[in-house]
Design a protein around this nucleic acid. Structure first.
Lengths: 218, 218
DNA sequence: ATACACAATTATGAATTCATAATTCAGTCA
DNA sequence: TGACTGAATTATGAATTCATAATTGTGTAT
């Protein structure tokens, strides 16, 4: 018999990991600030036990820092951390590009193209918010098309640490234009299913993004 | 005043994460078996709270699987997981090779060479145990020489998931010989500080290792 | 006022307790 | 014997409690 899927209630701590992670990534909990354990417990209507379990997991992912006897803090985003993180993301995206060219379905590729076209439209109206969403959809789409769950997981963790850097959005129009052009090349390589080329372009795209960021900071 | 470092007692859960992780990696806790929460608590002389916090972290790393209301289990090592994991490790080692060639000190390089020579000696006497240790020292050394903490962390998590596959040790003598030769090339590229070459060789080394493993399994 | 000492308060780490779900086991019936 | 039922036991998830560390607040002396 196989009438229905087994009922699985997600545990509190797993739910909290996702919810609090979101609060950190989208910036409601700001880098460098204390994570108000008690307040969060009250907001979510749970006791301290599952919340503290969740904070340990988030600390392991690098989004929180636990100070002995002083509680949990949202980790800061330092230039040194970004300097170390970008190349790793680039390496993973390079692999994702190579795998995606081999494994993507035509439907996946055309879906990625449609995100690309959305993104270009957002660029023409300089709609930053929606541009970033479309941009992320493209990169997520390539990861998904690569069909490697381990790769996706690690990329997600690393991307979450970078995304919190609000100043990333503070891009010059010149660099913005360049980024859109790089994306044209990325889409072209994907549609040609040229894995080496796509990997190369994705890697360079990340490197350029970081170079621009550093220039902007200095 | 700066007479001494502040005293920091590691929290129980952090200590437990490391200790239980070791039990899983070295195989005392076998893949697919139940993690005896109560017994572990008694062995370590702690209550269930910090142990359960540790298990959540290990589950997040992929070493354990939590089944709702049924406790924690050591995750199994499937061929599908290895198939997904090896390319990611290869991508990270490729990056490590590139960075190491640029950043390694001469002392680090000569230390890696000495591990290499140990390894060759172990090969000549077919000492599997020590060979694997020396082999790991080489790869860890390259990661350390790369000087990228984010890279090291993610490599460590992925490597820990693979290391538990006991059958990895079950290598043919032919493949073993080939692996030693590949290592010669790796050391040569490192000493020449040819990053692209080293990255390429490390990546291929991993790919060959996995190909040999698959052949052995089939 | 300002710096300090010390009590009161609060937050944290970890053990314990409690309700509930899963498992084991004895007893019953075919 | 072997499958089923339901009580007893055990394990799990989560709340609560408790000891201790950190912080805050108040009074005192300079």
């Amino acid at each position: 018999m196989n009438l229905a899927k087994p009922i699985t209630r997600p545990s509190l701590h797993a739910e909290l990991v996702d919810r609090v992670r979101e609060l950190i990534i989208e910036g409601t909990l700001e880098p460098g600030t204390k994570i108000p354990e008690k307040d969060l417990c009250e907001s979510f209507g749970v006791s301290r036990t599952p919340m503290r379990e969740a904070l340990k997991v988030l600390a392991n992912e690098g989004l929180a820092v636990l100070e002995p006897n002083r509680g949990a803090w949202v980790s800061t985003v330092t230039m040194e951390e970004l300097e170390a993180t970008f190349p790793v993301i680039a390496a993973l995206e390079r692999l994702a590009g190579e795998l995606a060219c081999a494994a993507a379905t035509d439907a996946q590729i055309s879906e990625i193209r449609s995100h690309h076209e959305d993104m270009v439209a957002c660029f023409s109206t300089r709609n930053r918010q929606e541009y970033f969403r479309a941009n992320q959809d493209i990169h997520d789409g390539i990861l998904a098309a690569a069909g490697n769950e381990v790769l996706s997981q690690h990329h997600k963790v690393l991307a979450s640490r970078v995304k919190r850097a609000r100043f990333l959005a503070n891009i010059s129009d010149e660099r913005w234009q360049q980024a859109v052009q790089e994306h044209e090349g990325i889409i072209a390589a994907l549609e040609a299913r040229d894995g080496a080329e796509l990997g190369q372009r994705l890697s360079e795209h990340l490197a350029n993004k970081f170079t621009a960021l550093k220039a902007r900071m200095a």
